[in-house]
Structures are given as C-alpha cells and as structure tokens.
Design a binder for these strands. Structure first.
Lengths: 231, 231
DNA sequence: TTTTAGGTATGACATATTTCATAAAATAAG
DNA sequence: CTTATTTTATGAAATATGTCATACCTAAAA
C-alpha cells in the first residue's frame, strides 16, 4: 500500500452524490480534512477481520473481495466490491472490530475517513444519518440476497449465476478478464476448486462460453441464463 | 392476528434499555403514542416480502422465523428471532418494500411503531440514530455469520450447529421442544427434509440426542459439539 | 535464466446428497 | 370422532460433489 499524494478533489467524486450530497460545505470540509487516500496493489490486504476500526473506507477505483476466514483457514467470499461500495460500513457502528477481511483483486484506490468524523457527521446532520442507514440496508441486502441465490442452486447454476454477475454487474459486457482465480470463484459459491474448474470446462465444451486463461467470453448468453435459472 | 388491548407499559419493557434508553421522556412519548401491540398465533404471517413498510416491528414475546421465498416457491429461512430482535429494522431505511417475510413459530406479541415516528426520532436524537445503526449492524452480522457457519459444513455439521443454536441461544437448556418442523430445519440449513430427518435419526441412534416427536434432549453435548466442529 | 509456487485441467474413485417411493404417526379440519 | 393433510421415517437408486493423484501451464522469485 502507498499513500496517494495526488488526491482528487472531493467535489468531483461519485460519493458526493452517493453519500455526501446533503452535507453543508462546512460539514463536507470535515470529511476532506480527515480523509486520506491510499493505493493498493493486487492481493494486498486492505482490511483484516479482527482489526480495530479507525477509518471508514470506500473505493474510488478498483475491485476488491470481502471475505471471512474459517477456523480451518478456508476463506468464504461474501461479495465482490467496486467503486460506489462502502467496504466496512456494515461494521463501523457495531462497537466491534472489523467483521470481514477485504483484499484487492485489481489495483484499488481507497478513500479513508476517520471514524470519529463519521460519528460527528451523524450527530450534526440527520439527513446524513438516514443516508448511512440506507446504505447499510443496501449492503446487507446485497450480501444476504446473493447467498440466498447461491444456496438454492447447485454447481452449474452457481457458476452460471456468478458469470452473469460479472458480465452484467461488474463489466457490463459479455467478454471480460476474470478478476478472480477459479479457487476464489469456488470460495464465492461454496464449492471446491476442482468442481468449479470442471464446470467452467463443461460450459466451454457445451459452447456456452469461450475461455483462454483468465479471458472469458460468454458466447451463448441465453443458454447461460437458462442454466442459471434451472439451478 | 388480533390487536392487544392489554398494552404493557413501555417503561418496563426490555426495549427501553435495548433501543430507547437515550430518549427523553417527550421523545419516548412519541413512541408510545404511535405504537400498537398485536398478537399472532403459530403460522400466522406477520410480514410478507414485498409489502410496503409502514411500521417498525419488534417482538415483545414469542418466536418467529425470517425467510425468503424463491421463484419456485421454496423458502429459505435466514434467522430465528425472539424478543429483543428487530424483525424489519434492516429494511426500514432501504426505500424499498419489506425484503423478508416473517411468520410465527410460537405465539408472538409484536410491538409496531409507525415508521414516520422512527424517522422523526432519528432526526431529533443522534444518540438514537447511532443505536439504530448499531442494531442494524448486529442484525446483518447475525444473518451473514450464520450463513457463513452453515455453508462450511455438511449435513451432520449443519444439523448439529442448529441444535446447538437452539439449545444454547434460544432455550438455554439441553432439553426443548423443537419450534420448527424438520422441513423448516432443512430450509434453515439448505438441505432436503429427508436428509434432515435422517440426520436427526442418526444422532438418536448414535446416542447424541433423545427424541420423541418434537421433543429433543441433547444427552451427549460433547459429541454434538464435536460433530458441529468437524463440519 | 532457472527455479519455484500457484493456477488450470482432467480422470478415477469415494462419499455425500437428492430423489422417488412408501408407510406410520401426528395434527388439523370437518 | 372421523377424515384429510402434514409430518416423521426409512430404503434403494440415481445423481452430485468431494477427494486424491497427476500433469501441464503460467507467473513470480531467485
């Protein structure tokens, strides 16, 4: 990780609308003065489960995974997050430590605002409070809903679901470079690496996708959808 | 459902400490004046996914399940909730409809406060806001953590985990009457009813539990724990 | 450049889980 | 109280998934 010294002006930030729009100039100044920006490279750890929470963090750029590690050292990925997502909002008001780990899939720029500032803003501006609650609600629903969808499918349906997610939500096109390994894909859908690889191969043999290393091209989206809906 | 006319005084309510402790007498008065109390019997539906959210609801007494229904009509239970749990707090600030259904396992008394009142309180009292966020955090973590635990186990481990949950968190004793059917237990751990039943029978044959209809007695808790930890 | 570690790939076999069938027991409905 | 429906129960067969072994490829490290 390195601290960025090329800090982009907040006025032009996407979060101005997403979270900070109701703040007065003075309140917005509080955010800026307690804010720092960091750059993380692939595989770096941004947040470790169990750490003290001292900053509220969100992505300005990049892609990360949010996950938990079990007692046997196995990871379970809860979500893939990108700019516009608040990576630790769900834990900030918990009076606990970080509940999830976050690590980097694609080079990521993180904005970090001191948590005390966030508490101050909540005290100063009730519109901001409500927006924070709104975002918490959204984040929780995203994670819970994704698990709900995954749990009712079996391997093929799960892989299809995640490929759709990547194509539709993350990259907005049918051809993309997988941001995660097959093992990580397995950790996302609670399946073994081998089965995940096998299923991808099967989709290739069936003519649903084309693959070359990490590059994936969904050539028969309708069939992918069907597999996704069948379970 | 029937409206209760024997409304218990809020001053003596467990929620006074859990959620409302920082409210002034005047603010607390707002809660009371927009509050109603309802009684639901087993299997009644308290909240239907998709309903408009007009009230903030929580249990004074009883036991409920919170669940989602998939496109094929199958339910997936996300949590079992009892007094002290806020059954729709996670959805109130979402600007959406109810995200989960809630139905009754054991006769339940529900307090319902108009959602406008909750918004007013958030605006009036920032300590209250922070407490609300704290509770949202807690609720989301509970659901997410439970799925995390369930997903890393196979049938035996899952059933063991839920039996421990019932014994340790819900009833505080090793002998209890199952508040859910085997099918519901299956919906809670994402397994078929048959497998769930089979696993319970196996635990009985192995001398881990005694069973008679819905009555369960965990006679070898150590072994149940071991099964739970093995996965 | 060579070495090393991790990622992708696939087969064969073991195990876990679902599905389908059937039946007794318990509970709800008339 | 009788009848219908749901719940619990179990077996056998089909299917899905995990495990172990092995190989090759790729990217990072020495």
């Amino acid at each position: 990780m390195k601290i960025s010294n090329n800090i982009i002006n907040c006025k032009s930030c996407v979060y101005r609308n997403l979270l900070y729009e109701m703040l007065s100039d003075e309140e917005y100044g509080l955010v800026n003065s307690s804010r720092r920006e960091m750059i993380f490279k692939r595989n770096e750890l941004i947040i470790q489960e169990g750490d003290e929470i001292s900053e509220f963090m969100y992505l300005r750029k990049g892609l990360v995974k949010l996950y938990k590690t079990n007692s046997k050292g196995k990871d379970q990925i809860l979500s893939i997050n990108r700019p516009g997502d608040f990576i630790n909002l769900l834990s900030i008001f918990s009076n606990k430590t970080q509940q999830y780990s976050v690590s980097v899939l694609e080079e990521t720029h993180v904005c970090a605002v001191k948590i005390d500032t966030i508490f101050d803003l909540v005290k100063l501006n009730s519109e901001f409070s409500i927006r924070v609650m709104n975002r918490m609600s959204y984040i929780a629903d995203e994670i819970i809903h994704k698990r709900f969808e995954i749990n009712q499918r079996q391997v093929k349906g799960r892989v299809a679901y995640m490929l759709r997610f990547l194509a539709e939500q993350i990259y907005n096109k049918n051809e993309f470079r997988m941001p995660i390994t097959r093992r990580e894909l397995g950790e996302l859908i609670s399946m073994t690496t081998e089965n995940t690889i096998r299923t991808m191969s099967e989709f290739r043999k069936d003519g649903i996708i084309e693959m070359e290393g990490k590059n994936v091209n969904i050539v028969d989206f309708d069939r992918l959808k069907k597999v996704c809906e069948m379970g």
